[in-house]
């Protein structure tokens, strides 16, 4: 796959692209994580987060395709930094080799910040009730219409619309509450 195809594949959440990236980069990521207090399971998890970080930045328009950009290099750099951040949370201090040549550190930092912000929101989302999570997933992720959601959830279309607003407001309140809690 070319880098352009990979970029488009990530943007479209294409499973074949994810499998391609996994096959081509897993060795390096497993090696980096294994050498730094992690397991193969950790590496798979970090790979997933690296993909989510790239997708988030593409979706927000912060990461755009450039002819000379190697997507794999960005993916590895994001995985590396996410792993360092996880190690810090586990109170483990490690000097992880910096193999991410060719990426501007400030650009990488900006990509991580965008990912981290969205990641915080996804964590808060898990505090929503099951029906709210299901409704939001159906509408925003699966792109189902309100009518379809109403049928799946056994409610009216109007209730689906009202609940969508209510669930998003709940998410906002939970997030703000979390931000102000010391």
């Amino acid at each position: 796959m070319t880098d352009k195809e990979i970029f488009q594949g990530i943007a479209q959440k294409d499973n074949q692209t994810f499998l391609y990236l996994y096959q081509n980069h897993k060795g390096r990521i497993i090696n980096m994580v294994s050498k730094n207090s992690g397991t193969e399971e950790d590496a798979l998890d970090i790979f997933q987060e690296g993909i989510i970080a790239l997708w988030t930045n593409i979706e927000k328009g912060k990461f755009q395709f450039q002819e000379n950009a190697k997507i794999g290099t960005y993916l590895f750099a994001l995985c590396r930094n996410i792993w360092i951040s996880r190690l810090r949370k586990r109170k483990i201090t490690k000097e992880v080799d910096n193999e991410t040549v060719g990426i501007d550190p400030s650009e990488l930092h900006a990509l991580e910040e965008e990912y981290e912000q969205i990641n915080q929101l996804t964590k808060v989302m898990q505090q929503l009730g099951d029906s709210c999570q299901q409704l939001l997933q159906l509408f925003y992720y699966k792109k189902s219409s309100l009518r379809e959601i109403a049928t799946v959830m056994g409610i009216t279309e109007k209730t689906a619309k009202n609940n969508k607003y209510r669930c998003m407001q709940n998410l906002k309140e939970l997030y703000n509450k979390r931000s102000t809690t010391p």
Binding site: F18, Y22, Q117, I118, L136, F139
Partner: peptide, 24 residues
Amino acid sequence: KNSRIAVQAEGLRQQLKETLPKAK
């Protein structure tokens, strides 16, 4: 905008969890 992306990111996380272990 961020909330909509966050919902999709969570959906993508589930998608990856279902897709990648097969290869592994």
